[in-house]
Deep mutational scan, measured.
Amino acid sequence: DETGKFLVLALYDYQEKSPREVTMKKGDILTLLNSTNKDWWKVEVNGRQGFVPAAYVKFL
């Protein structure tokens, strides 16, 4: 149950560059965990948590 969690859509592919980031593919649906930083949002994708560039995702 994803109640209270926001979902975001990956607009572009992103390859993680550090262990704190996660890789996503364009079209992936991600669970948004934290968006307090304007540049990097914490998400969960494929069972992994990490950061992606905020400009690469949008709210569903």
Rank of each mutant, 00 (worst) to 15 (best):
Y12R: 14
K26L: 05
K42R: 12
T3L: 14
N34Q: 09
G47T: 05
L9V: 15
L30V: 08
A55G: 12
Y12A: 11
K17D: 06
G47A: 06
A54C: 06
E44G: 06
Y12M: 12
N46C: 08
R48I: 08
S18C: 08
V43K: 00
E16R: 13
K25Q: 10
Y12T: 09
R20F: 15
N37R: 09
Q49Y: 08
N34K: 07
F51H: 05
G47W: 03
K38Y: 08
L7K: 11
N46W: 06
L11M: 11
T3V: 13
E21R: 04
M24Q: 01
M24G: 00
E21V: 05
W41C: 05
M24D: 00
A55Q: 11
P19R: 08
A54M: 05
L32S: 02
Y14P: 01
L7Q: 12
Y14M: 01
E21F: 06
D13P: 06
E21S: 06
L11W: 05
F59D: 06
L11H: 04
Y12E: 11
K42H: 11
V8G: 09
F51P: 00
K17R: 12
V22F: 11
F6K: 13
L7T: 08
K5T: 12
L33Q: 03
N37C: 09
A54K: 07
M24P: 00
L7I: 10
Q49E: 09
P53S: 02
G4V: 15
E2G: 14
V8P: 01
R48V: 08
K25D: 04
T23W: 04
D39G: 09
F51R: 03
E2S: 14
D28M: 12
K25L: 08
K17Q: 15
N34Y: 07
D39P: 03
V43W: 00
D39Q: 12
L9D: 01
Y56C: 08
K42G: 05
K5I: 13
L11D: 02
S35A: 15
K25N: 09
R48Y: 06
T36G: 10
M24R: 00
A54T: 05
K42P: 01
V57D: 00
F59P: 13
D28R: 02
D28P: 00
M24L: 09
K5C: 11
Y12P: 00
S18L: 08
Q15F: 14
Q49L: 08
A10F: 02
V43N: 00
V8R: 01
Y14E: 01
L9E: 11
L33W: 05
A54L: 02
L32G: 02
E2H: 14
K17E: 08
V8C: 11
L11A: 07
P19H: 10
F59H: 10
G47V: 02
A55S: 14
E44M: 10
L60C: 10
K25V: 10
L11V: 09
S35R: 11
K17I: 07
K38R: 11
K58N: 07
G47D: 07
E16D: 04
G50R: 01
T23M: 04
I29R: 07
Q15A: 13
D39R: 12
V52A: 03
Y14F: 08
Y14H: 04
F6H: 14
K42N: 06
D28Y: 04
T36A: 12
I29S: 04
W40I: 03
L60V: 12
Y56N: 05
K25I: 08
Y56P: 00
Y12G: 06
E21Q: 11
E44F: 06
Q15G: 07
V57L: 15
K17F: 05
L9M: 14
D13M: 03
N46A: 10
L30W: 01
A54R: 11
S35Y: 12
V8D: 00
G47E: 06
G47M: 05
Q15S: 11
K38T: 09
T31S: 09
Y12F: 14
V45W: 07
E16N: 07
W40D: 01
L33D: 01
V52P: 00
V57Y: 01
V22H: 03
G4L: 12
D1W: 08
T36V: 10
G4S: 13
E21H: 07
V43T: 01
F6A: 12
G27E: 02
K58M: 15
L7H: 10
S35T: 10
G47F: 05
T31H: 11
F51M: 08
N34M: 07
F6P: 12
E21L: 05
T31R: 14
K26Y: 04
G47Q: 06
F6M: 15
N46M: 09
W40N: 02
Y12S: 10
L32T: 02
D28K: 03
I29C: 06
T36E: 14
K42D: 04
Y56G: 07
L33K: 05
N37T: 06
K38F: 07
F59I: 15
Q15I: 14
D1Q: 14
S18Q: 08
S35C: 14
K25M: 10
D13S: 08
G47C: 06
S35N: 14
L33H: 05
Y56F: 14
V52Y: 01
Q49T: 13
L33S: 02
D39L: 15
K5A: 12
P53E: 01
L60H: 08
